[in-house]
Nucleic acid binder design. Sequence first.
DNA 1: ATGAAAGCGCTAACAA
DNA 2: TTGTTAGCGCTTTCAT
Lengths: 331, 331
Amino acid sequence: MSVTIYDVAREANVSMATVSRVVNGNPNVKPTTRKKVLDTIERLGYRPNAVARGLASKKTTTVGAIIPDISSIFFSELTRGIEDIATMYKYNIILSNSDQNKEKELRLIDTMLEKQVDGIVFMGGKITEDHIKQFKTANVPVVLAATQDETKTLPSINIDYRQAAYEATNYLLNSIEEQPAFIKGNDYVQSNGLKFEGYMQALRDASIDVDESLIIEEETTYNGGISAVNKLLEQEKKPKGIFVATDEMAVGVIHSLQDGGLRVPEDVEVFGFNNTRVSLMVRPTLTTIVQPMYDIGAVAMRLLTKFMNKEEVDEQTVILPHRILTRDSTK
Amino acid sequence: MSVTIYDVAREANVSMATVSRVVNGNPNVKPTTRKKVLDTIERLGYRPNAVARGLASKKTTTVGAIIPDISSIFFSELTRGIEDIATMYKYNIILSNSDQNKEKELRLIDTMLEKQVDGIVFMGGKITEDHIKQFKTANVPVVLAATQDETKTLPSINIDYRQAAYEATNYLLNSIEEQPAFIKGNDYVQSNGLKFEGYMQALRDASIDVDESLIIEEETTYNGGISAVNKLLEQEKKPKGIFVATDEMAVGVIHSLQDGGLRVPEDVEVFGFNNTRVSLMVRPTLTTIVQPMYDIGAVAMRLLTKFMNKEEVDEQTVILPHRILTRDSTK
DNA sequence: ATGAAAGCGCTAACAA
DNA sequence: TTGTTAGCGCTTTCAT
């Protein structure tokens, strides 16, 4: 069997309580006693059992992170932000992929609550009544990262997707002076809808008669971008600019245009979203909306630590700034 | 306070033991009793406390995953493989980034052992004596994923990096009939060394007098690829083929060559490594070595479950197959 | 098929 | 400054 606090106490001729105090850095221990205890801890190779501690103290110093897909470049950067701040505050992360599947999301929340996490960072699709209900079954704080909650009942960190899309659309509008195409992702995430709203609003504000054939929905991948352009090029009306819901799709769009003999940005301008690393890894480099993924994760985790510490929080709903980053895919 | 097994027992007029049996699917329960218990569990909204269970049973059904950097596309795919198999076997993952830093790695192992994980999947740089010693301090199984252990004492899942690099180099050699350049990553990982060995072996077998100036070490990033080419093009001797340690670097290499007015593959052929998603997201598309990241993670986790179940394992050191995937960056 | 009871290893009053 | 002790919520013998 492994060494317990009791073994240490016995060997050091003190009580368990004293060992516990030493281990937890409680100042009420005489230096000589502390030294004695520390020495026997070292000698016996004692390692505190966090599970026992968790049971007794009702704190596990671990938080759950529910994420659609860790292999997506977008979410993996977000997760890195979460993890770095978690480490800074001595928390560990239990990470699980939900694939944006509601049943799975609910099940994961349940599992994490069983494991007595001290808090949850949730990333995903739409937040439903069922999610809220599930979160409410335990009394742990929850923070949404890059995830919308229409009811605004949960704290969240986001950028203003609607406004960002509005600005991107306007940017293209100014340049090409006609309706740019819009390529939507097919994810079940609310930001998709918000981006679309921003796009439509910009057209409306410019008094443009909307041509629906310029709005295409495709899988949110590189290949989805390729297919979208193929559809677009089959049509009569060819766009002179394309606003694409994500960078990865946008890279597909650029390549597909180029494969079709069109030049970017001379013939068609392309505008992405997110500023993930791939936006630099394409020629021409991609004009895009900078969404600070790492920061969203970091701020979300920081906010969660505040809730877990029962600190005062002034603003639950954080909107981080975004900006347009112009590169070579637009004129 | 929340509902405990005791509350359920009292409400259902049975003992804690019976409730425990029902919760754990023990067949020795009369169906009517089971139903009664299940109903009151439902009614009270009872959720088992996994921490208490972990303390009593000495099993946490969670495993630790130590990873250099989750935001790297390579490791995030690997992690996805680990997570999927973990979920399949009802395990959760505690994920932590080590940044390939030895002190941090050792500390993370310690933390995870404190949290009583049932096993550890380790990804990282070199395995040292200190790592082994640290692992030995607890009696939990460890599996290395995409990570070498010179001493071969730990189970591991890898591909044959040396052989793969040998084949890639040979491929270029056959085409350009002179020494291709080699761009190394600067990571502190052993596979870097193995790739280099494979490259050198191929040159040796082809009786080529090695020109050291064609061997460049750079940061393992897109920008590292760009810098490497810049250095290469400053030199007298310009290569007609370049073997690059990772795809992301290779994409940088291609763009940098193109920016310098060279055509790929006509003037310079480029060969990558890993077959990450970016290898398709570049024009020309990248010839590369297929390393099955997802599978490495999945197999590693599967192997770990076997160890955790004390099943018989015939082969500790798994070498997964790799292959050359030719695309348009080579002739 | 069911129950009683002894832990699992620790924390946190409370007492001294 | 230190020790005693009662849990934390569950699993797991051992009886019955």
